[in-house]
Write a protein that binds this DNA or RNA. Sequence first.
DNA 1: CTCTCCTGGTTGCGTGCGCACGCACAATAG
DNA 2: CTATTGTGCGTGCGCACGCAACCAGGAGAG
Lengths: 167, 167
Amino acid sequence: MSDPGAVSSDRSAAWAALLRVHAALVPRLDRELRQAAGMPLAWYDVLLELHAAPEGRLRMSDLGERVVLSRTRVSRVVDELVNAGLVLREANPRDGRSALATLTKAGARRLRAAAPVYLDGIDRHFTQHLTDPEQKAIARGLNRVLAGDPIAPPTVRSADSPGQRVR
Amino acid sequence: MSDPGAVSSDRSAAWAALLRVHAALVPRLDRELRQAAGMPLAWYDVLLELHAAPEGRLRMSDLGERVVLSRTRVSRVVDELVNAGLVLREANPRDGRSALATLTKAGARRLRAAAPVYLDGIDRHFTQHLTDPEQKAIARGLNRVLAGDPIAPPTVRSADSPGQRVR
DNA sequence: CTCTCCTGGTTGCGTGCGCACGCACAATAG
DNA sequence: CTATTGTGCGTGCGCACGCAACCAGGAGAG
């Protein structure tokens, strides 16, 4: 058990690579986006989710769930966006507690201007270096990780072993 | 060009999944590591690289390059580790400018205690949800992204490939 | 030896971020 | 109606992080 190799197995090779790619690319993409589109990545993310929502409108909590930011952070980012005229903060007529964030025309325009910058960046720095099957594998696999599902069961074998089936 | 779909292409599906997985797992693994091993992820990362280095010794800059942290941050993390007795900060006899961080016995012990916690966490939250080929694809693909190489070069044609050589 | 340029490291400072808390409103019970 | 519990948001605070400025030591030219 004093095997030195125990601390650095390549079981974690994929995870290590993910960490490094994230660390390398996120700051770069953020910079490019700020410079070329004048908005930080957090703004883009929020605008994008609002754009995808029906009527460009979403409750704060729902926004927080979809976006990569914490709900707390969302509150502040929406502040900034309201201040920049890209989003409207409205009261929810159905529920006095909740607040609705709505994409403005200007917000949609800014998003549309920023999108090619971001997508191009992703292409140049990320997608371009991957083969098509790799992209599929990454997207499928990571989405399964997100869902917390075990490896694709060929037949639906439901939860009969709730314990950790490690290894 | 004003196609609304342009803002949300699935060209970026793999990238989006990567972002979400990172956002979901890093805090979780960090928490688990803090709770079970009493150290933040940054510590683990530094200890791991030192352990992998010859004699458990590394210059600050070299450490900064291997680790996911900036050199600035490394300096401070090493401070903390020295303070905790897990690392020694020594002068380099060959070069008065550089400082060497060296893993202590206690540091190696702490690392060995923490390793199973971290590796298990990666298994449970990440690897377990991926098939073997997916893991390989992710590791290989992402490492190619890191290297900034274009897709699988059949022949070793290095620097003067006609593709868009960004930067 | 001295002057100048380069390289390695640390530190002051601003920023981004999430947690813990508190307020306001909704929902339900009595 | 009032009382109690739950839910949705916003804010005070502290932490982690990186940039830019700074300081110290080496390398080479003269």
